[in-house]
Design a binder for these strands. Structure first.
Lengths: 210, 210
DNA sequence: TGTACATCAGTGAACGCGCGTTCACTGATGTAC
DNA sequence: TGTACATCAGTGAACGCGCGTTCACTGATGTAC
């Protein structure tokens, strides 16, 4: 019981992380299904054989990458939900937070956008499950706001999902646009959010949803 | 000048189409960047060498596939825009049209959703250009409606893009959900559209957009 | 219409290469006493 | 603390395989006269 973490385990985790980091870097310009095991180990500085001490294969590494990557998105969502104040200001800050995170962690967002509909089933499912969790978290936060009085669970989840999907779309658009296009993408994202917010405020005016 | 189309040209086009069809079929379960040239020619029933009579490489085939595939989406968008009548009914019909098209041409939608953020730059750009065109078409159609009085060009384009993005998201969700999930995905899609429509109707009530 | 030549879509053999996976191994770390 | 043994993360050689691309070719189609 002596060591809580031994030298061995520490080193193993370091190698594992090196593999994950190397993979994420390589995925900037290709997709997971074309990523080679030898390519990853070469970039990580270990032999191909060592890979199998950590993952069954590239698909398993992809799933691990989903967990790790979505932690960073989770922090961002938390920060957005913590925003308070006038809705126009909040909306501005939300888009600002997305912009900053995308610029700080471009590889993470690119990975999620790319593999969300990518060729590796297990990874697609892992991403879908995490984004679903995010949508539920957003829905739960929305439920606490006065604007949501009278909303059904289902409608809150619909709106939460809409926000999450838009976050991914906006991040992806920023990546495609490059730093020079940030302002323009942010401008459009703000307008889209404003439109959705307006729809939200008048949701209960309309005909009963079917 | 005798023949408008000779036997040779006809046969060549047939082989080219066989390559495109074979590729689209194979892309159901993988992404373009992992698709092999030999794999495609094998499925199309020609030798690997023949491929080069039609395309420079897999990326060029991908771009050709974008053109072909988006023609089918274009028809769908036209059908949606042609819908008239009460907004609740239109919205219902639009979602119905998407559902039907997705079930009839699943490979086309899957390809677009997957490669929109995929690993092949030329293909990503081709898809982005076509979706931008679609957004402009939708914006032009929206401009003619009475609900758009007072809307700026920029806002119309923002809304057009929002509709197009949602069409892709909905189609992708249908594919992921499988036939049994169609009803539930359609239900959520209708609500999202309804929310956006409500936002549209109150767009000019809010503060001046910045 | 018939003939002689040109074109060119598709063939089949060949190439060098990097891939994923296996195996027996090494030597540092961990454990029992 | 010291010793003897067990564990196991990472090594390095080897394998068979399918890949993309090249090349000279064939024979049906097209063209000129």
């Amino acid at each position: 019981m002596s060591h809580i973490v031994g030298i061995r385990q520490t080193q193993k985790l370091k190698t594992r992380q090196a593999l994950l980091d190397a993979a994420l870097g390589l995925l900037e310009h290709q997709s997971l299904s074309s990523l080679g095991l030898r390519e990853v180990t070469r970039a990580a500085g270990v032999t191909p054989t060592a890979f199998y001490r950590h993952f069954d294969g590239i698909a398993a590494l992809g799933v691990a990458l989903v967990e790790q990557t979505l932690d960073s998105l989770h922090g961002m969502i938390g920060a957005i939900l913590a925003e308070t104040g006038d809705s126009e200001v909040r909306l501005d800050r939300s888009v600002g937070l997305i912009t900053r995170h995308v610029r700080e962690q471009p590889a993470h967002f690119r990975f999620i956008a790319r593999e969300q509909h990518g060729g590796v089933g297990a990874v697609r499912e892992a991403i879908a499950a995490q984004l679903q969790r995010f949508a539920e978290e957003v829905a739960a936060a929305l439920a606490g706001e006065p604007e949501s009085r009278g909303w059904s669970e289902e409608d809150l989840l619909m709106l939460g999902g809409l926000y999450v999907d838009h976050m991914v779309i906006t991040a992806s658009a920023m990546l495609d646009a490059g730093p020079d296009g940030d302002r323009s993408v942010a401008r459009t994202a703000r307008r889209r959010l404003r439109l959705v917010t307006l729809g939200r405020l008048h949701w209960l005016d309309g005909p009963a949803p079917s």
